[in-house]
Computed example of a mutant assay.
Amino acid sequence: MAHLRERALFVRHDTRIPGHAAEGGAPGVPTGEPIDRVHLARYTLGSATLEREIIGLFLAQLPLSIEQLRFAATDREWQIAAHTIKGSARAVGAWQIARLAEEAEKTSGVTDEAVRERVLAELETAGEAVESYVAVVFPADATRA
């Protein structure tokens, strides 16, 4: 148990991830990457395998949440779906997706078809960017060791 505490302290105080361009980034501050690995490492104790699993869960849920936005029948349903995306994106450090979802949460995609289509397209594009990034940074065969 003590070794876990030591590792947690190491990750908290030395948030640099080798090869990561935005070493020591602050939470919520865009790093230029689709996923802020420094932010994510705070929750995974720097385990690339755990990071990949968490991001995989996020990427599996994201299309379902986007579909909830697409088929929202009321402003409340729209806001709940946008809020869900915002929260999960913030949890993994997907700041671009979180920002888009926050903007969506403040609009009415139910009554304004142009807003709905723009938000959905931007979220899908940002999701694809995360998928591409994850495929490069966390190759599937590397996590099966």
Rank of each mutant, 00 (worst) to 15 (best):
I85T: 08
R70Y: 09
K86N: 02
P63H: 06
I54H: 02
H39R: 14
A41V: 08
A82F: 08
L59Q: 04
D36N: 07
L69R: 00
R42M: 14
T44S: 08
L62Y: 10
S65T: 13
E67H: 04
R70A: 15
A81T: 00
A41G: 15
A89L: 10
Q79E: 15
G46C: 09
Q79S: 10
A72V: 07
S47L: 09
L59W: 06
P63F: 10
I66Q: 01
T84F: 13
L59T: 10
T74D: 08
L64R: 14
H83N: 04
I85F: 03
V38I: 08
K86S: 01
L40C: 02
L45S: 12
T84K: 11
L45I: 11
F58R: 00
D75F: 03
E67D: 14
I35N: 01
Q68R: 12
W78Y: 04
E53D: 14
L69C: 02
L50T: 14
T74P: 07
R70S: 14
I54G: 05
G56C: 11
K86A: 02
W78I: 00
A82C: 14
D36R: 00
S88C: 10
T49I: 13
G87C: 05
D36Y: 01
K86H: 04
D75A: 12
L40F: 01
T84L: 12
H83K: 02
F71H: 13
Q79K: 13
A73N: 11
L57F: 11
T74R: 05
L59H: 03
L59P: 00
P63A: 07
Q68P: 00
Y43H: 14
F58C: 03
Q61L: 11
L62M: 12
L59D: 08
A48T: 12
Q68M: 11
E33Q: 12
A82G: 08
L40T: 00
R52C: 12
L64N: 13
P34D: 06
L57Q: 10
I80F: 04
Q68N: 12
S88E: 11
Y43C: 04
A41R: 13
L62N: 05
E67P: 00
R76D: 15
L62S: 08
A72D: 03
T44M: 04
G87V: 02
S65G: 11
E53L: 13
L57K: 10
E33W: 01
E67W: 00
W78R: 02
A41T: 07
Y43F: 15
R42L: 11
I35D: 02
G46V: 05
G56Y: 05
F71L: 12
S88I: 11
I66A: 03
Q61W: 07
A73C: 10
P63S: 10
L40D: 01
L57I: 14
R52T: 15
E67S: 06
H39E: 14
E77L: 11
I55Q: 05
E33Y: 04
I85E: 06
G46H: 02
